[in-house]
Write a protein that binds this DNA or RNA. Structure first.
Lengths: 222, 222
DNA sequence: ATCAACAAAATTGTCAACAATATTGGACAT
DNA sequence: ATGTCCAATATTGTTGACAATTTTGTTGAT
């Protein structure tokens, strides 16, 4: 008997927890993921771990090789840029559809988040800014109502958590980000599809530029 | 020692074959996929089938429910439209990047395919037109060199093979399709990124319109 | 005939044992 | 010291058995 919705067996939970571990850096890229160890750590059996790993492989988070097990996949810099390209386009779609669908309650909710972002930025609480950032994008996706695109964005985002952390910390990026989000929300609330998409694309251009910068910095350091 | 590239165990092959079966309609939507049966049919064991089903679930081709097994997922009409939205945006990215990357040999290869399309259309060989259509998009993706977006498009396409067959058969669609592809190839060969993206978006608009029409027709028939 | 309760069958979930393969570590020669 | 071969270990791949759950079929009452 499950207290919450029983979607699918243990494997789902296992996959979720493994995702967490990878996202939070508890498993570092290229680290080997030994089935038996994971099974004991997550209090389940090898079969479920095996299935969860296959799911994460399909998702692009780990890589499996025959007879050699699974490792955390290291997303290269060029791949991070590819992912960014895909995200840019898909976020544009979402923004456009959100503008087409947004109602009065949606506008209120969006404005509240963006107001929170401004305050957090004014207070130099960048962690909160980042959190509200994610929340805002999630809300826009909800309003757009396009589950398929939302799902794609979700998996893409999970692959570049690491890179993204670095990018948001670049000097001046947070301020620009807030400004861009204000424009996006304004366009969506106005129901202007074209403006919303354009604003989102501008925002993603900023994100991509920051990402590129972060990568370049990192390359210089190594 | 393997004769060909040994990517991963049996599960990969099993998943590939199951995909085939679903794509070719050998398994109809909502049909139950019994693990034991599949294991004997594909000459493998339940564990591998189970893993393959988990992968296909992650991919969106089947749906699994706890204790109730897996069924072929029925993509609803609204979901087909969502997928089309995503494809439109991603194909636009690919076209743009292909225009940025296309070399002389690439241009020749693209022109050859589009010439074949014209001839096939003139000969009313619509199956060949459809085949070359897929080939052309694949070639554009190869030229663009964006593996991530190509992968996304691949999985999206696999979910709507059924709908797409219906759409291409609509009167006048094939002719328009050929015309649109000519424009796309011309822009890519000219290295004009913006024009290439625009041409591709126009093409996808045509595809989406045809899809919408096909769905409406189908709804009327039921 | 319709429905509920119940038994029987089918199916999935879990687990453990073993086989096949890869990885590690050490002895040995150079 | 360095590298190579070989045994020892660790890890994954495969299979089967059993438990838990769902689905199907049957019986009986109304």
């Amino acid at each position: 008997m499950e207290t919450h919705v029983a979607k699918q067996g243990d494997q789902g939970d296992v996959a979720v927890r493994l995702r967490e571990f990878i996202a939070t850096g508890r498993f570092v890229p290229n680290e080997r993921l030994v089935e038996a160890d994971l099974a004991t750590a997550l209090q389940t059996n090898r079969a479920n771990v095996r299935i969860a790993l296959a799911m994460l492989d399909q998702e692009g988070l780990v890589i499996r090789e025959r007879n050699r097990g699974a490792r955390v996949r290291l997303v290269s810099d060029v791949e991070a840029m590819e992912i960014a390209d895909a995200r840019r386009a898909l976020e544009g779609v979402v923004a456009r559809q959100a503008a087409a669908c947004a109602g009065k309650a949606d506008a209120i909710s969006l404005r509240r988040i963006v107001t929170g972002m401004r305050k957090a930025y004014a207070a130099s609480d960048f962690i909160q800014v980042s959190r509200l950032n994610g929340q805002l994008h999630a809300e826009i996706q909800r309003i757009a109502g396009n589950k398929t695109v939302a799902r794609l964005l979700e998996t893409l985002k999970s692959q570049i958590v690491r890179q993204q952390y670095r990018a948001i910390l670049l000097p001046g990026r947070a301020k620009a980000s807030v400004r861009e989000h204000v424009a996006i929300v304004a366009a969506i609330c106005a129901g202007d599809e074209t403006a919303a998409e354009a604003a989102m694309l501008r925002h993603m251009d900023g994100v991509i530029a920051a990402l590129k910068q972060a990568i370049a910095l990192n390359a210089g350091m190594v």
